[in-house]
Amino acid sequence: MFDLKALYIPDTVEEALELLKERPEARVMAGGSDNLVKLRDGHLLGLEWVSIFGLDELRQITLDDDGTIRIGPLVNFATVARHEIVRTHIPSLAHAVLTIGGPQVRNIGTIGGNLCNGVPSADSASTCYAWDAQMELRSADGVRVVPIPEFYITAGKVDLRPGELVTGILIRRESYEGCFGAYHKYAMRNAMDIATVNCSTVVKLSADHSTIEEGRIAFGVAAPTPIRAPHGEAELRGKPVSMATVNAAATAALSDTRARDSWRAGKAFREHMLAEIARRCLVKSITRAGGRLIESSSK
């Protein structure tokens, strides 16, 4: 039994946006895998809800004419992981969402819901950062597109204004073409867990695979929001493919983080792991891109 004051079930996106405009205090319910847990724990009581779960038009993954990948916010994780467009162009997103929860959660949880939760640990978030994703936000009065780092304000808070719905997660062709990614979720068990820290990287190599043209490093649970690591990325751009480059980038990336001490994990521990998983993600990304790395044998 849940304490819902009212539940509205619109048939179209337009209807949903009109409802949200009329009721700026109403909350949006997609899969419910986060909201119902909050309700059980005594939060969000006595509110009105608009369920968008039935809006299949928000459940597609398509490739626009200009090559933009458009992921509907209601796509569940199981579908994201299976979808040909994802697996062809941005497979690290498939890997990332497969680390979420378990099969049941992946069948009901949506990528839009995951991102709108605004938590720094979301497995889809750091990978969306690494792919330079943009959020399409629609209201009854118009549409705006926001790069994902601007969408995240602080822990638990995203720039989703009253009356707005996320209607697309966009990844431009120049962000993914010729690029290769990797994701690492560091957690305390192998399923049904939230990341202690996570990392997602993307690299683009020169035609002869000897130089890194561009590298992106994103972290989860290294700050109140998911973040990119610009100092780390500066150590990749134009540098030779080598373990020295990888190590320098991982070390520099650490300077972009603000890991905290908590009972779940201490700061020194988090920082050690962030640097280590950044290193491993870069090795994987570079290797997938065709780069050859020789691991030195001793510490």
């Binding site: 305390m188 190590n247 070390t251 020194a268 050690h272 510490k299």
Partner: peptide
């Protein structure tokens, strides 16, 4: 014997060093 304990003990015994290896 969680990762936290392993981290503390490996650091203490020198199995994990201060900085990243090359």
């Amino acid at each position: 014997m969680t990762p936290h304990q392993l981290f503390a003990r490996f650091t203490e015994t020198g199995l994990i060093g201060e900085s990243l290896h090359v």
